[in-house]
Design a protein around this nucleic acid. Sequence first.
DNA 1: CGCTTTTGACCTGCGC
DNA 2: GCGCAGGTCAAAAGCG
Length: 275
Amino acid sequence: MEEEPTAADSTDPQTAPPLFNEKVEALEAELERLRGENEKLRQMVEMMSSKYKTLQAHLQGKKIDEMGSFVTESCSSHELNKIAMNRVPKAKESQVFVRADASDNSLIVQDGCQWRKYGQKVTKDNPSPRAYFRCSMAPGCPVKKKVQRCVEDESVLVATYEGEHNHAVLGSPEGSSSLDHGSIRGSVASFPQSINVDPFRPTITLDLTLSRANQDIERVSDSSVEENNNNNNNMINNYSNASRIQEYVASLTEDPNFTGALAAAVARTLHYTPS
DNA sequence: CGCTTTTGACCTGCGC
DNA sequence: GCGCAGGTCAAAAGCG
């Protein structure tokens, strides 16, 4: 039985032309280099994940300590209920961080909905004005949002959403009527990407639309960081995915906008006190 | 003309 | 009760 020459045969160094061998070697070297870089990046992700978990555990412990000391001091059961109520974020309220040009005063956050501005106010804790919007996609839609520049980084807009849409939201594949941004974020590249940083907090989202990173969608949440690491490991086995991940991570780490937004988000997390 | 934005006035909740 | 701050209203202006 004679077998036809295959692609694998053509890579045989003894039968392939020298120029082809050189190319193969160069590609192999490049692949090896990329594997090394991927391994480094994987370790970086693991390290960040580990640091994040440590920080989260620390914050959690601090909250429990605070609550515990307060409880042992003077709390009635009624007061305890109030505390518990305050510690849970308001129903259907979520916070979104969006990168915007610092010179742009429009306070507009593109999120797939139409909004009508009904007020603007300068607040005490932030020199930049806060804009109030109502959803105008459907009559009677109760959803509101407040948009204000981040006090730590004026190029970051903080949008706070309240309520549930009573209509399908543009960009939501399931036609979800709720404010579950998870379903939205994963479907439209121009939408902000979310990072859940604290179970006591609403979702914090970083908009990556100004970086190359928005070409790929990557959702990261506190409960799925580890899972994503595993998924990433599997993906790293796939060369094309690995190169995409590498490009993605490199674009993130090189992008000062991303690092700025991340720093602002972390700063807000550390300064957060439940209302 | 209809819709949106602007902006000062008003309302409401909260702490003192 | 008072003052403050955040949130909302609504008339006027702007825009396509």
